[in-house]
């Protein structure tokens, strides 16, 4: 009973981690930049969603696609205007640049909106569904459903469409892709836009559960653990890792002593990286010299 309830809660939180980790994986595969600003993009999206729904009284179903589009376009512009300038520099430059951008987004949001938390209503808020013996909040079901749908859509997009295959080709070998007539730069921007939209979706789904708050960016750190557990650079791994981290957290909250729940993801991250850096579904670990 309780186990089942915990599992459902864990999966729904894990689905968010998976969504964030998926966005990180996409940009990492395309541009070899681990985007430390991803969590802040998510946070920005939550605030934009709040502004549209509460500030301008838009219905949720209009505000959701609008937020996704806005943030996606902003992320596209970010790659095109800023990230592209450091292509070819060591990975560290990408880490520093995205950390700087993350600080700027965080600062701008807190200057624009102020430090207090907010919340907005979704069509799912406050309803529950009985699934056999367990009671599940509709919001959690919506999250799991949305993540499943997005993952399936992404899978079809990346494997069955010309554009998706081109993105895969460019991620594997930029030069070869370029020589085959693929417009690699534009695709990289597109991937960043796509990842931005994914982050926006995660933000719009997560913030009704937590609150619309500056600290939403912390999801990024949990997703890094998911990314590592699933195997760095593997999209299926990101999904599996995200769900597992969600489950581990959910069970640690009940069965582990004290405040372990808050940090269990980081313990997993360290242990996996040190003992088993390849992760569950990762590619062979190594560096080209």
């Amino acid at each position: 009973m309780q186990v089942l309830q915990l599992a459902i809660n864990g999966v729904s939180v894990g689905a968010i981690y998976a969504l964030v980790a998926l966005g990180l994986t996409l940009t990492y595969k395309a541009t070899e930049v681990l985007n430390f600003a991803h969590g802040d993009v998510l946070m920005l999206a939550a605030f934009i969603g709040w502004g549209l729904i509460v500030g301008w009284h838009w219905p949720f179903w209009l505000a959701l696609p609008a937020t996704l589009a806005l943030v996606g376009i902003a992320a596209y512009g970010l790659e095109r205007g800023v990230m592209r300038r450091i292509a070819g520099q060591p990975q560290f430059a990408g880490v520093m640049l995205t950390i700087g951008l993350a600080f700027m987004i965080r600062g701008a949001v807190s200057m624009g909106f102020g430090p207090e938390s907010r919340k907005f209503e979704t069509p799912f808020s406050g309803h529950t569904t009985h699934l056999g013996p367990v009671v599940v909040a509709d919001l959690n079901l919506a999250i799991i459903g949305a993540v499943l749908a997005v993952t399936a859509a992404l899978f079809v997009f990346l494997t069955r469409t010309r554009l998706g295959v081109a993105i895969q080709a460019a991620s594997q070998d930029q030069l070869a892709a370029y020589l085959s007539g693929i417009r690699v730069k534009r695709l990289n921007s597109l991937v960043w836009g796509l990842a931005g939209a994914l982050a926006a979706l995660a933000g719009m789904l997560l913030s009704p559960i937590t609150l619309v708050d500056i600290s939403l960016w912390f999801v990024l750190l949990k997703s890094l653990a998911a990314l590592v557990l699933g195997g760095f650079g593997s999209a299926p791994g990101a999904i599996v890792g995200g769900l597992l981290i969600g489950l581990i957290e959910s069970f640690a909250g009940v069965y582990a002593p004290g405040a372990i729940k808050d940090v269990v993801a980081y313990i997993v991250l360290i242990v996996v990286l040190v003992v088993w850096p390849r992760g569950l579904l990762g590619e062979a670990h190594g560096r080209r010299v």
């Binding site: 800023v82 300038r85 450091i86 430059a93 520093m96 640049l97 950390i99 700087g100 951008l101 993350a102 600080f103 700027m104 987004i105 965080r106 600062g107 701008a108 949001v109 807190s110 200057m111 102020g114 430090p115």
Partner: peptide, 18 residues
Amino acid sequence: QFGLEIFVFGAVLVGFVL
């Protein structure tokens, strides 16, 4: 707003990296 400081930190960092 307290966000000004972190914004400036970020801007300085981005400026130097670029």
